[in-house]
């Protein structure tokens, strides 16, 4: 399984993580899935709705924001295919808290931000039995280059 994120969108995700530092930034990945590959077409940057004192290691996207995201995706002819968030000064591995709250099927793109600089992103999906995550390959090509 893999997810394609055009380089300019991955850069936007990294910039958001750097701007949110030392707090966690988050948002939605919009796009579609075809033949087992997910294609990110646009991003929805969202406010981290957690209280001030928790935003350095927690993020929250409210149900109201998700409802808004669903509507925006529908207007664009896209779907919410995943969530991105940053890990300030922490590896880009899902935490136990991530697992407890994870929704199946969605791609969870985590970017490590070290001392204010975005380092690397990895993408994960929840196992069907909710026991953990498995990683999915990230492809970074502009969508036009994928069309035949």
């Amino acid at each position: 399984m893999s997810i394609n994120i055009p380089p300019h969108l991955l850069q936007e995700i990294h910039t958001q993580g750097e701007n949110a530092y030392p707090e966690e930034g988050a948002g939605l990945l919009l796009g579609y899935e075809k033949d087992g590959i997910r294609f990110v077409q646009s991003l929805l940057m969202l406010e981290n709705a957690r209280e001030d004192t928790a935003r350095h290691n927690r993020y929250l996207i409210t149900a109201a924001d998700m409802l808004g995201g669903e509507k925006e995706a529908e207007q664009l002819g896209q779907s919410i295919i995943g969530i991105f968030h940053s890990h300030p000064d922490h590896p880009n591995l899902p935490s136990e808290f991530d697992r407890e709250w994870a929704i199946p099927w969605y791609s969870y793109l985590i970017t490590s931000v070290d001392v204010g600089q975005a380092a690397e992103s990895k993408s994960w999906r929840l196992l069907d039995d909710r026991s953990g995550f498995f990683s999915e390959e990230i492809i970074t090509r502009e969508e036009n280059s994928l069309k035949t």
Partner: peptide, 10 residues
């Protein structure tokens, strides 16, 4: 009725 998840993690 709609089921809408809220998303959290850390």
């Amino acid at each position: 009725l709609l089921i809408i998840p809220s998303i959290a993690g850390g």
